[in-house]
Amino acid sequence: MKIKVRYFGQIKEITGKSDEYLVEQFETVQSLKSFLKKRYPELNALNFKIAQDNKIDEDSSHLHGTLIDLLPPFSGG
């Protein structure tokens, strides 16, 4: 199963792209997170949330979505 991963805010600058497709298989949200942190080490310094199919999910959740979004908190006002 191919998944589409989209990057928001500062994460887009870390990865250098707004989205990409992954063909790897992941059990949980956490295992996808670990994979991305290895590919983009700067993500280690950042607090972010993962949504699958437009629902923000816990790290321990089973990864079932085909659309994954990485959401950092925003500051600026």
């Binding site: 500062q10 950042l46 607090n47 950092p72 908190p73 500051s75 600026g76 006002g77």
Partner: peptide, 20 residues
């Protein structure tokens, strides 16, 4: 419930730092 604890200083830049 979204972000249980605040990021560290400097982790997330604000408008005055990155522009908007």
């Amino acid at each position: 419930c979204l972000f249980p604890s605040p990021p560290k200083v400097g982790e997330i830049p604000n408008c005055s730092e990155v522009g908007v």
